[in-house]
Amino acid sequence: MSRIALQLLFRRTLLAIPILLCVSALVFGILRLLPADPIAMSLPPGATAADFEKLRQSFGLDRSIPEQYVIWLGRLVTGDLGTSIYFRRDVGDLIAKALPATLELVLLGLVLGVAIGIVGGLAMFSWRGRMGEQVLDLGTTGLMAIPEFLWAILLILAFGVALPILPFIGRLSPELVLPPPVTGFLLFDSLVTGHLRVLGSALWHMVLPAFALAIGVAPLVMRVLRSSLLDVIQEDYVTQARLRGIPEHTILVRHALKNAALPTISLIGVQGGFMFGGTVLVEMIFAYPGLGNLMVDAVRNHDLPVIQAVGLVYCVLVLGINAIVDVVYLAANPKLRVA
């Protein structure tokens, strides 16, 4: 990786700090608006007022809100994300278990979605002005009218219920046991420890959720790639290349795609960030044990420590994917590289 790319990553990290500070304050502030008392909800019916006070103190909820924020932030920096009110477990542990699952899912979904999008975009471009383009164009509009969580449900209906060929609950078949954790990433761990049946089952379980996420991005990638290709072939340098007798396929690959890739890369950055949002409901619907599922459980139980920690983790993920995409963009765009 070139020096300039490292510089960019460094600067991105530096810029992420104030953003994350604002994000954390925002999350903390919003959650303190909460009218209901999470402690009261989590107590058993026979609890006394003394129990209530004791519990409030143990979670630090008796202090003023800015105080609570500073304490929370201080612990956050040392890696202590607090304790879940509902699960009564360390929030850090909960996230450590859920995060790899979500990352694997998003990665698979993104790769799938971008691949479909690129193929579709090229197809639309090469069929420009013909019937095929119209059909695909209308198709993308239709696809985009269905959000990920409805795709999840429709896919379950189609491939889990009507044609029961694919699993749609959890991350593994129930008879399998998890391999010993190495990195926490199931696909990776099962591969390196040689548990190929686990690997197969995990991938099999990810097909539907990953596909639900992929259909969310694919039509957008298709459209942006197609329209940027259409823009690029109008450019003077494409006309000039034609006037030099450069063959059409060389023009497409060498001149058009290289330039059309730029807006597409930007789009993938934004959509990759949004895709983390998409996982929330998709994971919940597929009972997939990732961050999203954790988040929904926390929301339902007003489990504030979990909500604020998971919320923050999502923001870190979004900023991370943006930084990665920026580096890719930098590599693809000499105008930014050569300053």
């Binding site: 604002c22 303190r32 909460l34 960030g273 949004f274 895709m275 409901l281 007003h302 923001c315």
Partner: peptide, 18 residues
């Protein structure tokens, strides 16, 4: 700052708070 949130996450947090 707003763009750092996946919109669904921010919505969930807002609705828990409000």
């Amino acid at each position: 700052v707003w763009m750092a949130f996946p919109p669904v996450i921010l919505a969930l947090i807002l609705l828990v708070g409000m």
